[in-house]
Design a protein around this nucleic acid. Structure first.
Lengths: 154, 154
DNA sequence: TATGGCCTTGGAGTGCGCTCCAAGCAAGCG
DNA sequence: CGCTTGCTTGGAGCGCACTCCAAGGCCATA
């Protein structure tokens, strides 16, 4: 994925149960839809905008995805969850296509993303604290409300 | 904010330096822009779609925001960071307007949001792990690359 | 042979969250 | 008075990330 040389990215992904072994890894678009949760429209759109490396075709011109493609889609899915714009992911894909001399730039892009993710987690934890305070306020208020009703009734 | 009764939400916010004391809390839209980072367009749009409680007006019809409004905007800002759709925030605002009998529903909405935020944090930490693996891969690859250059040169 | 299912394409459409525009009003200043 | 600044409004427009459409090809089964 990251490398066009023999030195490939061996740190890619944990094993997936539905995957076929190397050599027989040829999935139709609808299989990939089932695996990833993306729509076929989105998969084709990713290709159009340059977010996918070249995808193999059958003799009738239909897409045939490889394990490598699935790995890439996993990464894209993760990056998408961080809120990274698609344009930035396309940039990363371009760097991968350009070869090993872009290692440095890829490194920096990932580092920046990492910092963004850390900041995002911090923001969310901040928000969580606010939510927790509000939730316990409402829990207390709810108890008081129930109590008042009982007192009025009794 | 949460309550129309005397039992108000006392757990709202840490002190903000730029705020004026109760009684003199009357901010123009451009002041609120400076405080919140939102645009005036967005502030007016929030009002149009029902995301703001009623905002005071000056004798000439200009908006005058209160500390209470700023607290509300802080909360909205936090919820926005969680990715909560604006429509859901509008729903929450409606519940607040409807009065104390919606406490239960507000509680549930916040609880659901809390769970979403926890899930989101977990996703991001997952992504962080992937990024860290890739980053260390590129760090190693970069070192190897430098070494090769040196060997060729030497 | 025909019917259905799965796939192909370029291009148009959608929903969200803003973002901006045109036209106009009120206040302050030289 | 004219000019600038800051605000008002309804409605149109924009960018992103899809999402869908129309029209058609290939092929297996009845």
């Amino acid at each position: 994925m990251e490398s066009t040389s023999t030195r490939t990215d061996s740190c890619a992904a944990p094993p997936h149960p539905h995957r076929r072994p190397a050599g027989q890894d040829s999935y139709t678009i609808s299989e990939v839809v089932a695996f990833t949760g993306l729509t076929a429209h989105t998969l084709r759109w990713y290709e159009r905008i340059g977010l996918m490396p070249h995808v193999d075709r059958s003799h009738t011109g239909q897409r045939r995805y490889s394990n490598r493609d699935l790995d890439w889609l996993d990464l894209v899915g993760k990056l998408r969850l961080t809120g990274m714009p698609v344009a930035d992911m396309v940039r990363y894909a371009e760097l991968v296509r350009e070869g090993d001399h872009t290692f440095g730039e890829r490194f920096e892009l990932l580092e920046t993303t990492r910092r963004d993710v850390l900041a995002r987690i911090a923001e969310l934890q901040d928000t969580l604290a606010v939510l927790d305070r509000k939730i316990s306020f409402y829990a207390d208020a709810g108890r008081l409300y129930e109590q008042e009703k009982t007192e009025k009734a009794g």
